[in-house]
Design a protein around this nucleic acid. Structure first.
Lengths: 218, 218
DNA sequence: TGTACATCAGTGAACGCGCGTTCACTGATGTAC
DNA sequence: TGTACATCAGTGAACGCGCGTTCACTGATGTAC
């Protein structure tokens, strides 16, 4: 089955119509099932309903397809982080927490993208567009950190880049250890979301940051 | 070459003498080179200098070999963490920091073990000894957290298990993102070690913990 | 101490399988005039 | 509007390869007596 050319609304006949997209979606499906190492070019072709030679019209090889998947993943990731941060409104502290939630939510909702982005072992250097997408995603976190830092007195501000790296590491660690689709490898006394939120609160308190005292009601 | 039967001190002849060990070491070598997904049973046999059928005398299949590697990894990991913690002497705060360093140091020094343990996708449930080894490693961190918590006034103590999970996630995130043998995917303004140390300091400060003020000189 | 025998731990050939990749090809689509 | 032709995006057969696994086997080792 999969996204063969016979889907409703899709073109039919000799030409698939949108094979490139179909291959990407097939790859995502397969990565979700078997991990980034377990997906094969031939499998993707089969799932898309074309012959094993067809993918070569669109991707040089398996690696390039994976790379494309990762790039799309980073782009979507950046979008979702951006949407969660929303310029730091209404206040930076609350928005920063939303950012953390969005990170975890993406890892949970799109495990295949997340695998391709972080666990497929592809180098960011092999494609400028990939690196750019990855940088864009990280920038959201970095800029949010910068803005949040502004709430501290000038002489108590940590380097925002370091702060971003700390939070990223924390979110990535929790995502990979506890937020897998398979329910994680270890029983937790709390959800991965709560785990990240509590860790971020403690970390931010360590920096001298606290939730603003203003009432949250609008 | 590899650990064939002709190594100095090894037995020679028809019987390998210590094939089981040799296969484990070959697997580690291969995982180090190509990741846990890239190693094959046949490859391990070749590297150990035996026929492709020989490994079946010692391991049911590739999965079981991987599982054995992971178990050994956790055992060594637990040992090194234990050694770093050293009962929390001379003071728990300093020992806790050593624990963080030991975590990162293991991930850096034994990337193949680390991959097998955390990235090979093997379930901890498939082998009681594996789970036990993994639990033992985590226990070191949990017990250290408990002990460190005792330095806080009773009404300000966080759940030690949560604290252990936070620190583990942080260390794991930094290890996988920045402490890979390939130098990491991203240029850092600081070493992974410094990154972890600074994050832990901030986190612990957030809990109300600080380095003891006593002079460290003996 | 020597011998017969059981058991252990390898061999090497063979198999079926699926993958990546190539090739000449062909049906479908788009465009110039 | 119609036709010729170039280009595009697929097909399907074929290949070499390495893997996992099995099988009957055999050399080496250990043990009973």
């Amino acid at each position: 089955m999969g996204w063969s050319r016979h889907g409703p609304g899709g073109r039919r006949g000799y030409h698939h119509g949108n094979l490139r997209e179909a291959l990407v979606r097939a790859a995502l499906d397969l990565i979700g099932d078997k991990g980034p190492g377990g997906f094969t070019f031939a499998d993707a072709a089969r799932l898309a309903g074309v012959s094993p030679a067809a993918p070569y019209r669109h991707f040089r090889d398996r690696e390039q397809l994976l790379c494309d998947v990762a790039r799309r993943g980073f782009e979507q990731f950046a979008e979702e982080l951006e949407r969660a941060w929303e310029g730091g409104a209404p206040d930076a502290f609350a928005a920063y927490e939303r950012l953390g939630h969005a990170y975890l939510s993406f890892a949970r909702k799109e495990p295949a993208y997340y695998s391709a982005m972080f666990e497929a072992g592809i180098s960011l250097d092999q494609d400028p567009a990939l690196r750019q997408a990855a940088d864009a995603a990280f920038s959201v976190l970095r800029e949010a950190s910068e803005q949040l830092c502004l709430q501290l007195p000038r002489d108590a501000r940590p380097p925002a880049l370091m702060m971003a790296l700390h939070v990223w590491s924390l979110a990535h660690g929790i995502s990979t250890l506890f937020a897998r689709a398979d329910g994680g490898r270890r029983k937790l006394p709390m959800s991965a979301e709560d785990l990240l939120e509590s860790a971020m609160l403690i970390y931010l308190r360590g920096l001298g940051l606290r939730a603003s005292a203003k009432p949250r009601r609008k």
